[in-house]
């Protein structure tokens, strides 16, 4: 920009200047940007190692200009543990979907949290398996029609939407757990602050920090980008309330 202008908002440096493969209106892009902004603001890009999971966000390394290890489906917290134990001074984060973290990878996330691994976990809850074509996720809402719950999720037989942020907050090893959303400008700003904090805590070696982000998958919800965005406050928030469920960052000093 010309010298006569002040930059108010720009694409973060930690994101590569390439278009993403995400669908139009997919909130993965927003969450990617918020993570990159946190890395920029905290000047962590050079020392950060991202752990990609299996889901629509598997191509993390195509978009983040950082070192990345790709983990098997659900195993990102275990891979992150291995990396972080070797490089305790680096910043290690996992980026996982709800199928990845809250179904196949439940054991790995609970035990990484329980050990109090110094990790930042970004959990993108879009109530579905985006990558494989919109099947039921453990976070799918009661009655939600997915490609494997064609008659709607039956809470009697298909289980209940799982609230990971609350669940993980119960563990002594968890130092921070919050749920945010990116469906409105002020909530995006708030989500950015929380994600920033979750990285800052790791920088200060303050333990396991977990951020759940409510996100839209317009494609598999069968909604326009705007209607999908709207669904987050209308349908998801009543089941997945926003808030901070645990914060020991103060206690950690």
């Amino acid at each position: 920009m010309a010298d006569s202008m002040i930059t108010v908002f720009e694409r973060p440096h930690s994101l590569k200047p390439v278009p993403s493969h995400f669908c139009s209106g997919c909130h993965h892009g927003t969450v990617h940007r918020l993570v990159a902004e946190a890395l920029d603001q905290l000047e962590l890009q050079q020392q950060t190692i991202g752990i990609a999971s299996v889901g629509c966000s598997v191509l993390l390394y195509e978009y983040f200009d950082i070192d990345v290890v790709e983990a098997p489906h659900g195993r990102a917290p275990a891979v992150a543990t291995g990396v972080k134990r070797v490089h305790p001074d680096s910043i290690v984060f996992t980026y996982q979907g709800d199928g990845d973290l809250a179904a196949i990878g439940t054991a790995e996330i609970i035990h990484a949290a329980n050990r109090g691994e110094h990790l930042t976990v970004i959990f993108v809850n879009n109530t579905t398996y985006g990558m494989t074509g919109g099947q039921m996720a453990p976070t799918s809402l009661g009655g939600q029609v997915t490609t494997t719950t064609p008659y709607g999720r039956d809470l009697e037989t298909d289980g209940n939407p799982i609230r990971m942020a609350e669940l993980l907050a119960l563990l002594d090893g968890t130092h921070f757990s919050a749920r945010v959303s990116v469906d409105a400008p002020r909530r995006v700003a708030q989500a950015g602050k929380v994600i920033h904090k979750a990285f800052e805590m790791q920088k200060n070696r303050a333990g396991f920090a977990f951020v759940e982000v409510l996100a839209a998958c317009p494609t598999n919800w069968g909604l326009s980008a705007l209607d999908a965005n709207e669904r987050i406050s209308q349908e998801m928030m009543p089941c997945f309330p926003l808030g901070t469920f645990k914060d020991l960052s103060g206690a950690q000093g």
Binding site: S4, I6, G29, H32, P185, G192
Partner: peptide, 21 residues
Amino acid sequence: TACSACARMCPDAAISVYLPK
């Protein structure tokens, strides 16, 4: 007004916002 609300919402980081000095 360069409030950046639009840029913040953009999932594809397509928007930059500037203000004249």
